[in-house]
Design a protein around this nucleic acid. Structure first.
Length: 785
DNA sequence: CGCCCTACTGTGTGG
DNA sequence: CAGTAGGGCG
């Protein structure tokens, strides 16, 4: 493999110029020193900014200036920059803006989300943490399915302890940078069950050559810890580190960043403590508060001039957020004209609310406002439905961000499972998904036998299948069906060596009978599914290899609808972070919904304050008008429930708000359902207060020399994911245990009864059973006589 | 083994 | 009201 640290001789084009520096007025209220710091400072820099003050523009400005100034004077190469954003969309936007500012495209730098950057890094060194470079990245569905299988085997009652919820606990441990061993050391409370499952789960992932989202960072941390020389080289490589939305980094991300930034210490973080809305997935506002002690001598720049919202909107949001304690505190100001007050509207029920929003949108459209300038921001995903229905009725085009995705459709997931099996032979979850699709007569009983063997031998499901088809544990029909399928996969893998992956995918879908399955299907949407499959085939062509395509799907892929069309955006408040719209609708401001009951049940005042920050984020998305609304009645599970207006409604200052109520109702206390989770001790989340993995983990070393070899990096940066090595012979991770039985031993089999061992071949035995005859069976299904 | 019918449960935010 | 897990039957 090529040396990942190699960087080509840098050839800067002398005519490179900042064409149109991104919005310089975003830095206008800084003094010359601060401004210079933002643009070119060497050394730690923290930009504290409020909502709508142009945080991200600042990062973009800095990037553009670094590339131009340092690029020429100090031969700073794009590949020596690590820039972390919160979403892939933000990364894309930054890429485009910098390209625009410099008047040329910039490529090769490490720009993306934590997950995508960590995955890129990890692929290069996967062997060192017990994975192969073509490891699968599991989505949350697969994570839960895997845990369910483990719990089935361990005979844990999943009614009492749902796998989904346990998965949440494990993920939060990962967010805190805690591997199974570290959980054992540092989590003191009685949660032995979850700890035990975490350990088994992690062992199983290694067998399957798979990583979940949390692993991408966690394995990096392990790598840095065990291989300081590798960490050192990355520390030397990354001369500048830039981080957006720093208030929402979790412990694992913090450790990752700190480790990488520690040599050059040119780390620039941008954040706003009032917009910390991800503590539920392990984010620590403490990271931003600790910045100055982590990086002594750090320069701090404050941005307080708001360039986005009208004074009324800004004042309403600012007042609301003052109800939180323990803020860093800031005074936002604006030079914009007064504008409209924030509207607060009370309505009778959810339907009336949707109607109201629909009418407002129509009124705006008739005044010539484009639909793309309007957004409906909801607290929870399911709330989008009533608005979608209303907008469909009115014929208003809309798009739901984070809604059902192309890659979540059944036919696409099936096809992806086939690709996964080709790319990574040990992918048990993919194997399980497609082993009987189209129907091959493989049912529960067969699958159970495979599962048992794969657990006992600690091999993947397909490897187990490969072993068992050589024995008589399975019925002849099954042996043929599964054997045929495994043979097909072997052939398809070999085909990759000589054929393009696009052609291979087409072959796979054809020869497996998958396309035929839909072609002959009588379902109404079968033709549409075939269309989708065609789309998938064309999408894969844009990627270097199967692994990079699969990584793109699991980490980057967004629903790319024709963005050029004018559409109203519907999305959750969380997804709206960092965005802005002229007109923003904020429905569902009712106690129990927003603030959400469970946030308060689980985290008390802290939970409430996070909900309030979410409300703050919501209001400050608006440039020209924010419309808050609440309904007095709502139908939940076909049951009518009445609700009180959110306390946040009361906390908005009268002088900046125009209150309109349809009904004057909504003041009788409703029985807002609390949603009873986790009363059981076993399930309780640990208290993290005393748990400080950050302090005890010290992954960074000293400084070192810089050394850069020269080679064609341009070719390499695009394919940062390693090619799949099609290798039918050695591709399965198999266990080569030998049997504890020897010829002549008296043994017993579940199905065949008592018998005598006649021959031994590894863990495969030939046994003569009385009245049954001689059978080939596997060691692990045999009991001593 | 696979299909169909019934009973139950769910919906908090994301990569 | 959905969607699905699990049981029973062909």
């Amino acid at each position: 493999m090529d040396d990942p640290f190699e960087i080509d001789e840098f050839a800067a084009s002398p005519e490179m110029r900042l064409q149109d520096a991104p919005a310089p007025d975003y830095l206008a209220n800084l003094n010359a020193e601060q401004r210079e710091a933002v643009e070119t400072l060497d050394g730690p820099l923290l930009v504290l900014a409020g909502a709508g003050t142009g945080k991200t523009r600042v990062l973009t400005t800095r990037l553009a200036h670094l590339l131009e100034t340092k690029g020429q004077t100090e031969r700073l190469h794009p590949q020596q920059i690590l820039a972390v954003t919160f979403t892939n969309r933000a990364a894309k936007e930054m890429q485009e803006r910098v390209a625009h500012a410099l008047g040329r495209p910039v490529e090769g730098w490490w720009l993306g989300t934590f997950h995508s950057l960590a995955a890129r890094l990890l692929r290069r060194h996967a062997e060192l943490v017990g994975l192969q470079s073509n490891f699968t990245i599991l989505d949350s569905d697969d994570q839960v399915r895997l845990l369910k299988q483990i719990m089935d085997a361990e005979q844990i009652d999943q009614k009492k302890w749902p796998a989904k919820q346990l998965m949440g606990i494990i993920q939060r441990w990962k967010d805190k940078g805690l591997s199974p061993e570290r959980v054992n050391e540092s989590v003191e409370f009685a949660n032995g069950g979850a700890k035990y499952l975490y350990k088994i789960y992690q062992e199983r992932l290694a067998v399957l050559n798979a990583a979940d989202f949390g692993d991408l960072l966690l394995h990096c941390l392990t790598l840095f810890q065990k291989h300081p020389e590798i960490l050192r080289r990355y520390q030397e490589t990354f001369r500048y580190v830039l981080v957006d939305e720093y208030q929402d980094t979790n412990v694992a991300q913090y450790l990752w960043l700190r480790a990488l930034a520690m040599v050059h210490r040119n780390i620039c973080c941008v954040g706003d403590d009032d917009q910390a809305i991800y503590s539920w997935r392990g984010a620590e506002v403490g990271n931003i508060l600790r910045f100055e002690s982590d990086f002594p001598g750090a320069k701090v720049v404050r941005l307080e001039q708001n360039y986005r919202s009208t004074p009324h909107i800004l004042a309403a949001a600012s007042k609301l957020i003052t109800f939180n304690d323990g803020r860093l505190g800031k005074e936002l100001w604006t030079e914009l004209d007064t504008g409209e007050k924030v509207f607060v509207k009370g309505v009778w029920d959810g339907e009336a609310e949707a109607r109201l929003v629909g009418e407002d949108i129509e009124a705006l459209q008739s005044k010539g406002v484009g639909a793309s300038h309007m957004a409906i921001l909801v607290r929870a995903g399911f709330q989008t439905r009533e608005f979608e229905e209303r907008l469909i009725t009115l014929g208003i085009p809309y798009r739901v961000v984070g809604g059902p995705r192309f890659y979540e459709r059944q036919e696409i997931r099936d096809a992806l499972a086939y690709i996964r099996m080709v790319a990574q032979p040990d992918d048990s979850l993919a194997f399980e998904r497609i082993v009987n699709v189209p129907k091959r007569g493989v049912g529960k009983a067969t699958l159970q036998t495979l599962h048992q063997y794969s657990r006992d031998q600690a091999v993947s499901l397909p490897a187990a299948a490969l072993d068992l088809i050589g024995t008589e544990e399975l019925k002849p029909k099954m042996r043929q069906a599964i054997g045929g399928l495994l043979g097909d996969f072997k052939r398809w893998r070999e085909m990759l060596e000589t054929t393009s992956h696009v052609a291979v995918l087409e072959t796979v879908l054809d020869e497996s009978g998958y396309t035929d399955m839909w072609r002959t299907s009588k379902e109404i949407d079968a033709p549409g599914r075939l269309e989708n499959l065609k789309e998938l085939v064309s999408a894969i062509g844009e990627f270097e290899n199967l692994t990079s395509f699969l990584e793109h799907v699991s980490l980057v892929m967004e629903n790319e609808q024709n963005a050029d069309q004018e559409k109203v955006t519907i999305m959750t408040l969380h997804a709206a972070k960092g965005l802005e719209f002229d007109y923003v609708f904020l429905p569902g401001w009712e106690e129990g919904v927003f603030p959400h009951q469970r946030a308060m049940d689980e985290s008390g005042v802290k939970g409430l304050e996070e909900e309030r920050r979410l409300a703050y984020v919501g209001i400050t998305r608006a440039r020209k008008r924010a419309t808050v609304s609440y309904a007095a009645n709502r139908r939940i599970y076909n049951q009518w429930q009445s609700a009180l207006p959110s306390r946040f409604v009361d906390e908005l200052p009268d002088e900046h708000v125009e209150r309109i109520s349809d009904t004057g109702l909504g003041n009788h206390r409703g029985n807002v359902s609390p949603g009873a989770w986790g009363a059981d001790d076993w399930m309780k989340m640990p208290s993290w207060a005393d748990n400080k993995p950050a302090e005890s983990y010290n992954p960074y070393g000293g400084t070192g020399e810089r050394r850069f070899a020269s080679a064609g990096w341009q070719d390499r940066v695009r394919k940062n994911v390693i090619d799949v090595k099609p290798d039918g012979e050695t591709s399965y991770t198999t266990s080569s245990k030998s049997s504890k039985y020897k010829v002549g031993d008296a043994v017993r089999h579940r199905k065949f009864g008592p018998g005598t061992v006649k021959a031994v071949d590894g863990n495969k035995l030939e046994i003569h059973f009385e009245g049954v005859g001689t059978k080939k069976v596997v060691d692990s299904f045999i009991l001593p006589g």
